[in-house]
């Protein structure tokens, strides 16, 4: 993963109410929550700063109402932040004209919505081709591109159906297809699978990963489901009441939760399935164990080996020993 930021948010605030900007400025741009609420404002985003790296899947997590949707809408400028800056490929989004913004959306951004937001008066293919249509691309060409995408999202044979003739899962495939039509670089997904049944959701998650493997987009994915976050994320952002509480890899969140809120989120998870050996091993490089395990393996998969051997060596991809893991460490971790 190359670590150049694709998108940067700097001290973004979003308040709802009358003249929120004046209000913020009159409070040194840093009023506390109580002051905000007693003045009759709604605090949707509070001082959020973050970077999104090229080709990563960044998952934003938090309870309903914690400001996830507002944050991504600030990033796409569907909502204007009250104060703060957002840079997309080093361009200040706040300074774009309407026209420039439309150009960026036409070529570099795509978004999938929780309730699909399909155009009910358009067929599947017309929905997917819509972003191309508004660019003025002729019918033949845009339908050709749309057909490719229909294949990608697995909707062959349903090109001429109307949305209401499709199941929820199929509808969201159309939503995904439409957002991919312009071959965006930055792909927003706002709880795309929350409205689906659990089984369908799982299937869609797998398919989503498959698509990402072949397309390699920079993805910002919202969910309130921690299992989903763990399954998909490279990094996770946890939000609470408009604030970003923690940014880190899934393992970071479990091993080093920033506060009780994060801890509560992670408590009931099957940790041995989520954490890799690396995160609990001793850094003592013991080479005398006959059994060796890779540092990236999940703990549950080496559980048997450790328990029967008493202690194992941990090696990295190039077979260098980087640490060791003992029965005691593992059982302490599991009983914890």
């Amino acid at each position: 993963m190359s670590k150049s930021p694709k998108l940067v948010c700097k001290n973004v605030w979003k308040l709802y109410g009358d003249n929120p900007k004046e209000f913020l400025q009159s409070h040194n741009n840093n009023p506390d929550k109580k002051t905000i609420e007693s003045a009759g404002y709604i605090q949707a985003i509070r001082n959020a700063s973050l970077e999104v790296y090229e080709n990563e899947i960044l998952v934003i997590m938090g309870l309903s109402g914690s400001g996830k949707s507002t944050l991504v809408r600030c990033m796409s400028r569907l909502v204007d932040p009250t104060i703060g800056e957002i840079f997309f490929e080093n361009i200040d989004m706040g300074k774009l004209t309407k026209k420039e913004l439309i150009e960026i959306r036409r070529h570099k951004m795509g978004m999938v919505f929780q309730h699909f937001a399909l155009f009910p008066h358009r067929t599947v293919i017309e929905n997917i081709a819509f972003p191309l249509e508004v660019q003025g691309i002729n019918k033949k060409e845009r339908e050709k591109s749309a057909l490719e995408i229909i294949e990608l999202v697995g909707l062959q044979g349903r090109e001429n159906y109307f949305p209401k003739e499709l199941s929820g899962g199929q509808q969201q495939r159309v939503g995904i297809g439409r957002s991919l039509a312009v071959k965006p670089e930055l792909w927003f997904l706002d709880e795309p699978f929350s409205a689906l049944d659990p089984l369908i959701r799982k299937e869609m998650q797998n398919e989503f990963l498959k698509i990402q493997n072949s397309l390699k987009k920079t993805i910002i994915f919202i969910t309130h489901d921690f299992d989903e976050a763990i399954k998909l994320a490279d990094r996770i952002i946890i939000m609470n009441e408009g604030r970003i509480v923690q940014i880190g890899s899934p393992e970071d969140l479990i091993m080093k939760p920033a506060d009780d809120y994060v801890k509560e989120f992670t408590e009931d998870l099957p940790r041995e399935r989520l954490l890799s050996v690396k995160s609990i091993m001793d850094n003592k490089k013991e080479t005398n164990n006959s059994v060796k395990v890779y540092e990236d393996e999940k703990i549950f998969s080496i559980l048997e080996k450790v328990l029967s051997e008493g202690s194992v060596s941990v090696i990295d991809k190039s077979n260098n020993v980087v640490g060791s893991l003992s029965k005691e460490t593992v059982s302490k971790f599991i009983n914890n």
Binding site: R73, I102, F113, H115, H121, V182
Partner: peptide, 23 residues
């Protein structure tokens, strides 16, 4: 969300009105 999906598809204001909202 429908309005937003029109905007994210790159609609101008006029396109949003006549291709999305009115239909």
């Amino acid at each position: 969300q429908l309005k937003e999906s029109g905007l994210m598809s790159g609609c101008t204001e006029r396109q949003l009105m006549w291709k999305v909202l009115i239909p």
